[in-house]
Write a protein that binds this DNA or RNA. Structure first.
Lengths: 229, 229
DNA sequence: TTGACGGAGTGTCCACCCAACACTATGCGG
DNA sequence: CCGCATAGTGTTGGGTGGACACTCCGTCAA
């Protein structure tokens, strides 16, 4: 089977930068390449776009196939099209940006046929293609976006403590925040539902659990409310 | 001449949303299509990406060819890849966002071989393909971006009055601003060079001219300064 | 020449938001 | 029951943003 065109066409791929958060660090999902080029090198999950699927569908499909992941948040990041970015020829890649709750996915990624693993974004091996550029772009986007959109919650379990949330922001923004000011601000937004539950299995006073109220956020957003910091 | 591949490939195009500003309104550049599909319909300037040029180079080339325009600012906007967006088959388009000083380009665009014209963004004819979506995305980006990056200056002549600048923001943001507060804020940023010149040919007191200091902005930006509103 | 018109240019006050800052409360474990 | 680790809680001062109105100046026409 082959396909013939009157003019030459680039290949089109999608690549995904999937972030997760655990107790130590902000993590990114990588796949070890099984074939040339860059065989054995770590790379972002991704692959060729099929003719009958949208770009976002392609990204979701590749994540499902390569790592068994269904992200909570998936959005287009940037399209990388430098002529020499792939040694096989002209390949243009539409990069996507995804956030997952690591607790849901830690096992999955490691047990798939292909070798997949979470790496700290501060300690990433040498990557295939221009994937280091893509990762850097995504990391920058995360740092910028987290401040004015409530996407941090996509990285936490559904029920979380305010301290967990604060740690999340501290890790992503790479600076320390004041506990009292942080709580004041978050609670004042009225986006967190205070649960009648506390965290379990801790050897000290247990903290109260909260849940992010997506519905209320959508309402407030329509009314012109702006999440910030 | 023909090109054969083992797997099918989408076509890849770039489309450009070029904004300009004149005394009345925010304008966008459109080209009248001379061929099917959508012959005679207005569309964004754009075309196919060549195998040896980057995406941005393709966007610049198309703008030059179709409208004789070299934009002051050109950045990638979003990639549109819905399977049915082009009746000719699968065509994925990388959209670019551009700003020009209309005074430089008003004539050029109208005198080129192809029919090109500036339309108010509030009164655009029915567009070809999904170009209305692309335009809407670009317009939204402009509104968002203008508030926290000093890109408005790319729409004005090199020397401008504070009132012109204020009108620009009012048109883009679609709300009125307070004159004193606006001046206070802009001048406090220390990014405008006060010239020893005033505007000419006005039938009232002439306003002082200013110039945007790109060099100083780059310095301040490195030092962590954030332009805002 | 002078008066009217049109837009240029200028300062203050108040309300709110943000950053800095330290102690008490509670539950667990030894 | 005592120590430890983390939870949880208010006040203050400085700075910023928004509201607000009058005088200045150059042109043009009577």
């Amino acid at each position: 089977m082959s396909y013939t065109y009157e003019y030459p066409r680039p290949s089109l791929t999608v690549d995904c930068v999937v972030f997760g958060l655990d107790d130590e660090d902000l993590k990114v999902l990588l796949i070890k390449r099984g074939v040339e080029p860059f065989q054995g090198r770590w790379a972002l999950p991704g692959g060729f776009v099929r003719m009958d699927e949208s770009l976002e569908d392609a990204a979701r499909r590749e994540l499902q196939e390569e790592a068994g992941i269904r992200p909570n948040l998936l959005e287009q990041l940037y399209t990388f099209g430098a002529p020499e970015r792939d040694p096989r020829g002209r390949v243009v890649s539409v990069a996507y940006f995804a956030l997952v709750k690591l607790s849901d996915h830690r096992v999955h990624a490691a047990t798939d046929a292909r070798e997949a693993a979470w790496f700290s974004v501060y300690d990433v091996p040498k990557l295939a293609f221009d994937h280091a550029d893509i990762l850097a772009t995504a990391h920058q986007r995360l740092k910028g976006k987290v401040r004015y959109q409530p996407i941090g919650f996509e990285l936490l379990p559904p029920k979380f403590t305010l301290t967990q949330l604060q740690r999340l922001y501290e890790k992503i923004l790479e600076r320390e925040l004041d506990k009292r000011n942080f709580r004041k601000k978050l609670l004042a937004m009225d986006l967190l539902e205070e649960l009648d539950e506390v965290e379990q299995d801790v050897s000290h006073r247990a903290a109260r659990l909260y849940r992010f109220d997506h519905k209320k956020y959508k309402q407030l957003e329509k009314a012109g409310f702006n999440f910030e910091l």
